[in-house]
Write a protein that binds this DNA or RNA. Structure first.
Lengths: 380, 380
DNA sequence: CTACTTTGGCAACAGTGTTGCCGAAGTGCA
DNA sequence: TGCACTTCGGCAACACTGTTGCCAAAGTAG
């Protein structure tokens, strides 16, 4: 690592803390303690970030016996990013601010079978629609797509039923068309990023509802910014139940993809040894069991099956949060949240069992979140 | 991150590359390319490391049309570390060099039931036995222990059958007694570290067999050091089959422990929905199925069960290598390697299915490896 | 023997975070 | 009201990073 990289690293560290702190902001001294840097270094860094418009002063905190600290806060509208969910029949694009809040969105039908070139045009149009107007600069575009793909190279894999997509270098082509950094990832990973981003966004009010916040608010040392607080970033899993089952894994502060971007194959976890055959060739996969239950209308049983598989993940990976999404879940959210929660509670080895919830933010939001990530020092 | 940390980071980067390169060594230019630093910076760093005795010149490579590059290599005996496997009835300690090769070992019985204080004495004696003589300084001691424990705090958890251990701050007590950094981790994680370290050690010959190596060897640009080569570090999983089943996960270049050091709970993955009840309260866990097969002498079936559960892990985490260890496996290694391999081959979604092998190095070696890790920039 | 390529050190440099110092802006007490 | 005390945060000098420009050393190729 060289000096410019060091500078970027520390800038990102400070930005991440300020993002976690929400509109209330944080004092310089507190930033120094949390980053491990000296107060002087923090002053230099914050001056730089302030000159770039990324952060601003946000009043002063209550005094603790001396000069009250000047609070600094992230300026969410200093930069934006765009996230695109490229699904088999729909394309949804959102523009988000630095706090991860949606400031514009657009969606419409798309014909995946028309091939990648047509989809590129649709993505370019969608990005122009949400991001084309005057506004803060875009830091990047995240694209979430179904099926296997190579995140590193940005190349699509074999999407079932759409052979023309295999090998298409979507990231490269879009970067050429948009002139922006583009990030391609699986939709389940974007779901996980959205889920992980949700507890960051939680410290920020809805976009546009910030009038007169945080003037002289009393900010204790523990307020906001769980990111670097004891225990480190949380572990969360996004489970998608739709035409297939997939998982996005948020481990150790970032999306876990595995070496070949193939991680998260949740649907073909065997849950019933020597059970009914699955289209993948194995027997008793979660997918075949769950979709069979859905097909016969037994949603509680489907939820129980997903729950058992989720409990396996929780035990294996020490997961804090399980988020559920996808069309099947959306059709009966309470049944799935309750059903999965019941299994997790029953099988918890630890009394502090993980939180189960419906995925609040969508895949497009997660893609935008991933495009934002480099600014805050996360790899993705 | 501040300047001393930056320096340490870059030192570790260079050391890691040189470790991966083996006795043949690497040229400065190559180090510059791989680290992304300028040749001048590499010269400064290598001069520093040379002055500390950590690296040394190792002859010159063949010329590629100009002045031949001076090769640099790690000096394995510049530092050592000690790894201790603290099991229920045995204590094994090894002293390893910087290449991870065992240079001394010691083992003997221990009575876990005698309580933690007695075990501390036994560990101190064992460390003195392998590490007490004159020799290079020890960088730290890694201790691998069974059962749940808090890696971060270094505190033991509830070991089944030995209540007196719960809450014992083994790391702190040992650091006080030994005056060295001590690292406490689960034995399965140490197994994973040993497995991951094995392909690093593979570039080094056996300890003591280095006479006259690497003089003028022709080192191509791709030789050694897969660590930072395309694709990044491998993912590997260590599966332990003994009185219980456990997994150690090596993901993304380090041991994955989860937020509460609880990751790797492999034994209680449900593999047969509504199967026979397990002592954990669930039904159809891998452990109850596998141990039942072992109890009735059907080792191929036990191997198949472990294989199915391993295939779940491989699909979920995009695993490259599966290493098997533990007493049950050791009793019939071929049966397990073949049985697990067969299931993985059958269920592989990707033609490049993972390698299955018997864990070559033991848990103590892995503990020593983890104690070495900070020197090479890995968190653990 | 000469031209060329490549390695790698020396010296000056730009840019980090750090240290020592001090003014600014509050609180708390006499 | 006045004064001591605490805390925040900027200024200047500093130590230490990696970087740039330059050049000697040591090979190959003709």
């Amino acid at each position: 690592m060289n000096l410019p990289a060091l500078r970027g690293h520390n800038d990102a560290l400070v930005l991440e803390l300020l993002r976690g702190a929400g509109p209330a902001g944080l004092g310089r001294t507190e930033l120094a303690v949390r980053t491990g840097l000296t107060p002087q270094a923090v002053s230099k860094i914050t001056a730089r970030l302030g000159a770039d418009g990324l952060i601003a002063e946000a009043g002063r905190a209550a005094s603790t016996g001396g000069k009250p600290r000047t609070l600094l806060r992230l300026v969410p509208d200093a930069r934006h990013s765009v996230g695109v969910q490229l699904d088999r029949d729909e394309l949804r694009a959102v523009r988000v601010d630095l706090a991860g809040r949606v400031v514009a969105e657009s969606s419409g039908p798309i014909d995946f079978a028309a091939g990648p070139e047509a989809a590129v045009e649709a993505v370019v149009r969608a990005v122009a629609r949400v991001g084309g107007q005057a506004g803060p600069p875009l830091v990047g575009v995240g694209v979430a797509a179904p099926g296997p793909l190579d995140h590193r190279a940005g190349v699509m894999g074999r999407v079932t039923g759409f052979p023309s997509w295999k090998g298409f270098p979507l990231k490269g082509v879009l970067e050429g068309r948009l002139g922006l950094p583009v990030l391609l990832d699986k939709d389940t990973n974007a779901g996980a990023a959205a889920a992980a981003g949700a507890w960051l966004r939680a410290t920020w009010p809805e976009a546009g509802a910030e009038a007169g916040v945080a003037r002289g608010a009393d900010v204790g040392p523990g307020a906001g910014g769980d990111v670097l607080a004891g225990g480190g970033p949380r572990t969360c899993v996004y489970l998608h139940v739709g035409t297939g089952l997939g998982a996005g894994l948020w481990l150790g502060g970032g999306v876990y993809r595995g070496v070949r971007s193939a991680a998260g194959e949740f649907g073909h976890q065997v849950l019933l040894l020597d059970g009914p055959p699955c289209r993948c060739g194995a027997r008793g996969c979660v997918e075949v069991l769950c979709l069979a239950a859905v097909a016969r209308g037994d949603l509680p049983e489907a939820a129980r099956i997903v729950g058992e598989a989720a409990a396996n993940l929780v035990a294996l990976l020490d997961v804090d949060r399980v988020l559920l999404g996808g069309r099947v879940v959306a059709a009966a959210p309470d049944v799935f949240v309750a059903g999965v929660g019941a299994v997790l509670a029953a099988r918890a080895l630890d009394p502090a069992r993980p939180v189960v919830a419906l995925a609040g933010a969508g895949v497009a939001e997660g893609a935008a979140e991933m495009a934002l990530a480099p600014l805050f020092g996360r790899v993705g």
